[in-house]
Design a protein around this nucleic acid. Structure first.
Lengths: 373, 373
DNA sequence: TTGAAAGCGATACCAT
DNA sequence: ATGGTATCGCTTTCAA
């Protein structure tokens, strides 16, 4: 229980002014206050150890100066890898710089819980924040959100930025990375090293990224005139356990290389390979997604690096710009990812391979790879 | 900008009742409402797509159903390791289960920012949350907080739980782990393996844990009758960079083993050893603190494991109990840590070594170690 | 069983 | 330059 503390009335009384004056002094405007009065008010504030009630302030001001991060998967999943920590870091530094509070809403998909759509929807409508960043939104929920955005009650929803790879012509504000490019590059890298039977471990396809990443992979293979064996493309729960399970299945078919579509899947795949008594890259090549550990594990992993910090930072910046009316919806942004070559594909390279303009396919890869060799 | 949405008045009008009735229906009490009336209200809610304004509700109810996590070091540091992700996971699942919102406050120590004490103090006084969990509090700030807790304005501060190893007779609510025990065990483990010149890398001594961990180490050495060379005990910024720097310094003195006092320090120490062209454990033994990666890196690390998830969970549970008046301050809790034996000390063990009652020092270690061999 | 109205603690408009 | 007061959207007491 919090005890009684001074209110704006107490301060006003002690300083012998009205509460309006106190408010103006404390907010530095919009009205200007005589210096002498100002000092009396500030002294009263000091003596009473007055701290404005943020809730009252939010109600009166009709804005909260807070944003929410809403993650649609259970927190257990969300925090299991370094990706979301970095994302959160980018978001939290940005909100701090701009004077916004940050609330964290994670959805637990236990039986007794609300439907996940209600979960998103509540945060977007209860006015506890000025806007939100939505991550890990199932495609079905994106569809429902889109329907609202295209309907008449659109602006009863707080503005929000999604971190899912929604279409360019959708009504969402969006921040993503160019995984189409880097997944293609990684695939071409494997092909160039001589691999033809390549396995792909994708995440949960109820999410857009779960369905798009394998598609990007297939596309790259097809582009090079290589067939894709359906049994070599698997989708599992995007966790370490999922990655291990998927790899066990793949090992039966014995591809010469495997590509895992996120950081935790990669770790899981690696441990399954080890448990099967195989070695990377001698027995099987592995390309993954990169967490901060990629260079510490054995062997150092060739992996796609997602600039999670920047994704978070930009999402927050865009959201705040939206909230404060500096930009208008829908706003789309795509950041660059990169493939970092280490040792898990049988090469001893450790260089960064950036996707600059002009890199468009096998041809580009060949020259880049040549440059690295 | 959020558009106009229905308020409780709109609902009341449409249902032909007073706002009080609407409120009681929505909150399921404390007053009971006739079933027929209830249904009319719920229908109006449905038709108007009414969502209560959380800010107004908080102001009127004089409680926010929200708690804050306040971390006293810059977010960059905080999220650089897996420790705080897990901590946050434990906290967020607990708040979700109990219907509390979670806000995340991270202090950025840039020149223009508030003093860090003001930062803590503001959150504890602005009534935006019902309580807070404080981590990474500098000892100087703990002292100032303690002064308030022991003074007359104590209950103008929201209740809070600290994650620092404050004394048992201090007025704080506290959740920590028994690092005195596990640091001792790790030290004894090294001694038992024959090491005598052991280095210790501690973190920033402006934090209690930065000063206590080296002290626990020294104590364990002394207990075994071993001298501690002062140059072998160093304190650095508790990051990966700090760990590397410390290890470089230590390598000049060439201890046969090194103990690093947190997860990031451990990684940094490891990379410095590598860069010096040395190998673990052949050239130098390493004991560290354990992140989720400890088993994936090479060699798998013998390390102290802190149950970060449980620390977070218990801190949140205790805080909520405090807020809801089920327990009274000060409340202290100490969770168990454990030493996990892997390969970085020159053994091929990979067993868990729990600190159960009866384990009290070298004698216990000897029998346990014997059991493991 | 329900309504009217008094807060909650601020912001900001309308006066003077 | 300042005071008075309506208002924000709820919860809850007091009456009926």
């Amino acid at each position: 229980m919090i005890g009684l503390s001074a209110t704006i009335h107490d301060v006003a009384q002690r300083a012998g002014v009205s509460i309006a004056t106190v408010s103006y002094v404390l907010n530095g405007g919009p009205r200007t206050v005589r210096e002498e009065t100002r000092r009396r008010v500030l002294q009263a504030v000091e003596e009473l150890e007055y701290h404005p009630n943020l809730t009252a302030r939010r109600l009166a001001a009709r804005k909260t100066k807070a944003i929410a991060v809403i993650l649609g998967l259970s927190a257990t999943y969300v925090f299991s890898g370094p990706y979301f920590s970095e994302l959160l870091l980018g978001i939290s530094e940005t909100t701090a710089i701009n004077g916004y509070a940050l609330t964290l809403e994670t959805y637990r998909s236990r039986p007794k819980d609300r439907q996940s759509f209600e979960f998103f929807h509540r945060v977007l409508t209860d006015r506890s924040v000025d806007g939100a960043i939505l991550g890990l939104v199932e495609t079905a929920n994106l569809t429902r959100l889109q329907a609202i955005l295209e309907g008449p009650t659109r602006d009863r929803l707080a503005p929000f930025v999604v971190l899912e790879p929604v279409a360019d012509d959708s009504p969402f504000n969006r921040v993503v990375t160019d995984l189409e490019v880097s997944i293609r590059a990684a695939t071409l890298h494997l092909i160039r090293l001589g691999h033809r039977r390549i396995g792909f471990i994708g995440g949960d396809p109820t999410y857009l990224s779960g369905s798009l990443r394998p598609a990007y992979f297939r596309q790259a293979m097809t582009e090079c005139g290589l067939p894709v064996e359906d049994e070599l493309v698997v989708n599992v729960h995007g966790t370490q356990a999922g990655g291990a399970e998927a790899m066990q299945r793949l090992l039966i078919k014995r591809p010469t290389a495997v590509f895992a579509a996120n950081d935790m899947l990669t770790l899981g795949a690696l441990s399954a390979i080890r448990e099967a008594g195989l070695r990377v890259p001698d027995d099987i090549a592995l390309v993954g997604f990169d967490g901060r550990y990629a260079e510490h594990i054995q062997p150092p992993l060739t992996a796609v690096h997602i600039p999670a910090y920047d994704v978070g930072r930009r999402a927050a910046e865009i959201l705040i710009d939206l909230v404060e009316g500096r930009i208008t919806q829908p706003w789309k942004e795509t950041l660059r990812s990169e493939l970092i070559l280490r040792e898990s594909c049988g090469r001893l390279l450790n260089r960064t391979f950036s996707f600059v303009e002009g890199f468009t396919g096998l041809h580009g890869t060949e020259s880049s790879a040549a440059r690295l060799a």
